[in-house]
Design a protein around this nucleic acid. Structure first.
Length: 271
DNA sequence: ATGGGCACCTGGCTGC
DNA sequence: TGCAGCCAGGTGCCCA
């Protein structure tokens, strides 16, 4: 799935097609997502105009006149904007029909995605209320990362992926950012020096912005709203490159399992 | 407060 | 060819 860059790419892709449109109908073909889609949800949103589309962490927020749709792509979800919609395919779970004949279709084979509606401010929703800062915002500073790591005995990679501390950094970009920063993923968080925390903040920013620039990373099923894959895969330094030569120094990239997730690093470039 | 492990689900690939 | 086993862009929740 989608990490922050893929969600951001999706957000930018669908926004122009949704903003200002009215939702004529929301059809739930299969409500069995990570949480069952509320049976009242279609009625709550139909007839409402879309004010805009934004992103918070890996959630897409579709702002309506009264309330907000909160959509998560899970591991394998994607959204497509369709104008002359082809017949539904396997795992097309949701259709949001628009007043200009357009259609926003949600496909998610693994069904880890989710859809909620909230009448209040989205930031107060239970899924969003406890989230950490956005990595591309100004609150994510070297000082912030240094401070929050002081009491933590977890590996720095796991800390990076903890959305209560900083959002949007998933398994691919955590490995990539640590490579750019020259830090081993297994290092205990509180062992980082000030200067390392600083490099890491910079690396997270850089890898995420670069990935957004090229439409995210497609490993298997991710496509943007226009149906095109992301091209960041070609720029990956370590992710899914176990045994291949490090793009910087040539020594073989290593793989290990950390917190039940695959981790990749260069034993020479990262210390 | 922190950390570890599990659960949710389907599909694609590997190796016997 | 068939099938078991393992792995995959996430993350909330329960337990120590």
């Amino acid at each position: 799935m989608p990490e922050l860059p893929e969600v951001e790419t999706t957000c930018r892709g669908i926004a122009p097609h949704l903003a200002g449109r009215r939702i004529t109908r929301l059809v739930v073909h299969d409500s069995r997502l990570r949480w069952p889609v509320d049976a009242d949800l279609p009625a709550s949103v139909s007839g409402q105009r879309v004010l805009g589309v934004s992103r918070r962490a890996k959630y897409l927020l579709i702002a309506l006149e009264r309330g907000t749709l909160i959509l998560h792509l899970g591991m394998s979800g994607s959204l497509r904007v369709l104008h002359s919609p082809p017949p539904r395919r396997l795992h097309d779970h949701l259709d949001i029909e628009l007043d200009d004949g357009g259609l926003l279709r949600f496909n998610d084979p693994r069904r880890f995605g989710s859809l909620h509606f909230t009448a209040g401010p989205p930031a107060d929703h239970r899924l969003l209320a406890e989230l950490g800062p956005e990595p591309l915002d100004s609150e994510f500073t070297p000082e912030y990362l240094y401070r929050i790591t002081r009491s933590r005995r977890v590996a720095i990679k796991q800390l990076l992926m903890n959305s209560h501390l900083v959002v949007g950094v998933g398994n691919i970009y955590a490995s990539e950012a640590l490579f750019l920063a020259g830090i081993r993923p297994g290092r205990m968080a509180r062992g980082l020096k000030r200067e390392e925390a600083s490099r890491l903040v910079e690396a997270v920013r850089e890898v995420l912005s670069m990935a957004i620039r090229v439409g995210g990373t497609t490993l298997r099923d991710y496509v943007g709203a226009d149906g095109n894959p992301g091209y960041f895969r070609q720029k990956l330094f370590v992710y899914e490159r176990a045994g291949l030569p490090c793009r910087r120094c040539g020594s073989p990239v290593r793989h290990r399992t950390q917190g039940q997730r695959s981790t990749y690093f260069c034993p020479v470039c990262q210390r």
